[in-house]
């Protein structure tokens, strides 16, 4: 078991034990079990999956930015925005996705490409959590 802390600036922290955790890092998703090598990385927008250890039961969160700090007994996630299934609104997420896609497909010269792309990724992450 590994102890997990999710720390956000405006909410009280989540603190619990899990069997293993899958985190979307900037250079790809990675899984963390107990005894992982000490590791710090950035998070990209994606789905954070927590395995409780009971019959493959999982808890999923949409996560949009932040950092992970892993040492061999614990994992700490520092993020400004972590959303559980209850926090999300399917219609809004779908609309945000459509909007971002439309913007990316338009041939507007002063389009903030990076921003639109991030918006799309966030929307996709939210929808993935919702469709579990």
């Amino acid at each position: 078991m590994i102890s997990l802390k999710i720390i956000e600036p405006t909410k009280s922290p989540i603190d619990d034990q899990f069997e293993h955790v899958i985190v979307p890092g900037v250079d790809g998703d990675f899984g963390v079990y107990e005894g992982h090598t000490p590791f710090i990385t950035k998070i990209r927008p994606g789905v954070l999956t927590l395995y409780t250890g009971k019959k493959n039961q999982t808890v999923k969160y949409a996560i949009h930015d932040g950092f992970v700090m892993v040492d061999n007994k614990s994992i700490k996630i520092i993020s400004e925005c972590v959303e559980s299934k209850q926090d999300l609104d399917e219609k809004r997420a779908q609309e945000a996705k459509n909007r971002a896609e439309k913007r990316l497909n338009s041939s507007n010269a002063d389009l903030d490409y990076k921003r639109a792309e991030m918006a799309l990724k966030r929307a996709v992450a939210r929808l993935k959590v919702l469709h579990e």
Binding site: D27, I40, T41, K42
Partner: peptide, 20 residues
């Protein structure tokens, strides 16, 4: 004194963390 592995690289992490 734990030595961490950094991804992508240390400078990026420092800057991003500093901003936060």
């Amino acid at each position: 004194g734990t030595d961490f592995i950094y991804e992508p690289d240390e400078n990026t992490i420092v800057e991003e963390l500093g901003r936060k």
